[in-house]
Amino acid sequence: MGVLRGLLPRLTRRQMALIGIPLTLGGLATAGAVAVLIFLGASGGTIRPAPVQPIAYDHAVHAGDNAIPCEFCHRGVSTGAVATIPSVEQCMYCHAVVGQDLPGVLRLAAKWEAQEPIEWTRVHRLPDHVRFVHVTHIDANIPCETCHGDVETFAVMKQVNALNMGECMGCHRDTTNQPASSASPSGNAVLKSSASLDCAVCHR
């Protein structure tokens, strides 16, 4: 400080204020702008780390090695808004006779014996003001991978896409005004109908 005082011109209190206040305000404004940008970048678009589940369920074994279709367990996906997590009973359809010695299946069987549900931790969550409906997208032949990634390779279920409004709009814009049954620009979906861009379709 002593060195600085020697180098800098001596300033009166008034001069200090004249220089200092704009500098401080400018600094605060910059910090605020950065904070807003970080918030905008993060809000609604965070890919959260994969949660630890009560049972180490392995999608790679079920959907990958054994090639069980997604819909076999997530039965609500083709009838309603929510894809649904299978009940313990549904797991036991197979596990009453398959892999009874595996540690995960033992824990499952214990839950079944006790007639208790498994408290899975949710992986994909949309904000409360969005009403996503699975069945509409299944009807439009959108493959599950479009949003959920290559689940058949995931040993631990994780979120791969931000699932923010930009991602929704990207697809909805691509598929709006497309003639029915044409391939989407991504090339992997054959569409039955075009997507709507009306706010009320999701926000209601």
Partner: peptide
């Protein structure tokens, strides 16, 4: 099917837009 609104915003009748959407999905 309907958002639970928070403090500080306006809300009003939607002509049950969620039912309109559902009927469209079923018709489709």
């Amino acid at each position: 099917d309907v958002t639970v609104r928070t403090k500080g915003i306006i809300e009003k009748c939607t002509f049950c837009v969620q039912r309109i959407q559902r009927a469209k999905t079923e018709a489709n």
